[in-house]
Nucleic acid binder design. Structure first.
Lengths: 197, 197
DNA sequence: GTCTATAAAGGGATAGAC
DNA sequence: GTCTATCCCTTTATAGAC
């Protein structure tokens, strides 16, 4: 049993994650993390040798197991079109529910060096991409699976990336922030396009 | 005629823009800007009262007129499908050529407060969205034009947002960074989807 | 309009007591 | 394992000379 007023690494990281998601690496000080955790800044250095290490550990915790539900769907043996619909729905719900996760992915893709991009790739993107590209090859074997996968995932993600600016855009409605509404739309869009062909 | 070793506001902002695009607001110090400009940090305070004002002016300069070529295409009277193809191609080339612009848009959507989001909306998104939603209503009047517009733009943007992590993803090829290749793919994808319908 | 110098605050990180 | 106190550097911003 751990004493009551001591904090584990996981507890610190769990508090640090939303801070980094909201303001980025250079926008969050060790003092700010310590304040939220409820300890002194010096205490953080007992758990982590420096800020960078704390940050990398936070990313590792933020990313681990996140793609599991998606991978499970992608590796199931339901019909390809239904699998796609399930995948899109699950991805919508994931990024809607866990805004920190989407923000951190975006920040890491912009700010990450090679090793940080590798962590993001191996923990989040790699097997997810493998599954989506395989699904694309089943559904549309004539086209480049990589390009299709990016287009599909992008057409989901952008709905949530643009959520903050939505109030200032024409034609926007409240329902557009509902992950189920977005999922239905994107599934239809991905399968049929603008169906003018 | 301005003396040779004095810098105009525009020159300062032109140098500051790529710095903010690369490292974000809190990742760039006034000293770092001054160093790149070739003046002392104090000189910057002659042109701008504080860092925030300099940053906002940099965003205003970075965004102004950026969407002009896109709006021109969208308001032309060529056939809708061709207009869509031209729009997608132009957007691909814009974000490929001007990486700072795409990064700043992303950062502003994550970090911007209300007034910054309003600037981004009015300078970049608003009339562009108006054009794309109108185009969507011509091409596919049965579906929600807002959702379609987001999906279309997102399926373009994500190709460039993920450029940094591409080397670590399966199935990626060099040609995937070619804006013309991406444009052809996305145009086809948007019009036809996975064409299983 | 730019400079040097400097104030004042904040940031990362460490020392040593408990 | 956490604290207070502190070091040292960076950062924002200003003062005043040229």
């Amino acid at each position: 049993m751990r004493p009551l007023n001591t904090k584990s690494k996981e507890e610190i990281l769990t508090i640090a994650i939303p801070l980094f998601a909201g303001s980025g690496y250079s926008g969050v000080s060790m003092r700010a993390i310590a304040l939220k955790v409820g300890v002194s800044a010096a205490a953080l250095y007992h758990h982590f040798p420096d800020k960078q290490t704390l940050y990398l550990a936070a990313m590792a915790q933020a990313f681990v197991d996140k793609a599991d539900s998606l991978e499970e769907i992608l590796s199931s043996r339901v019909a390809p079109e239904k699998r796609l619909a399930q995948f899109i729905t699950c991805l919508c719900e994931l990024v809607h529910k866990d805004n920190d996760f989407s923000m951190l992915i975006q920040r890491e893709m912009m700010d990450g060096d090679e090793s940080r991009l590798q962590l993001l790739a191996s923990e989040v993107y790699h097997s997810l991409f493998q599954g989506v590209t395989e699904l694309c090859q089943e559904l549309d074997p004539k086209h480049d699976p990589y390009l299709l996968a990016i287009s599909i995932i992008g057409s989901v993600m952008y709905h949530f990336q643009t959520a903050a600016i939505r109030p200032y855009l024409p034609h926007s409605k409240e329902q557009h922030s509902d992950p189920q509404v977005v999922a239905r739309h994107v599934t239809n869009f991905v399968l049929q396009g603008l169906k003018t062909g």
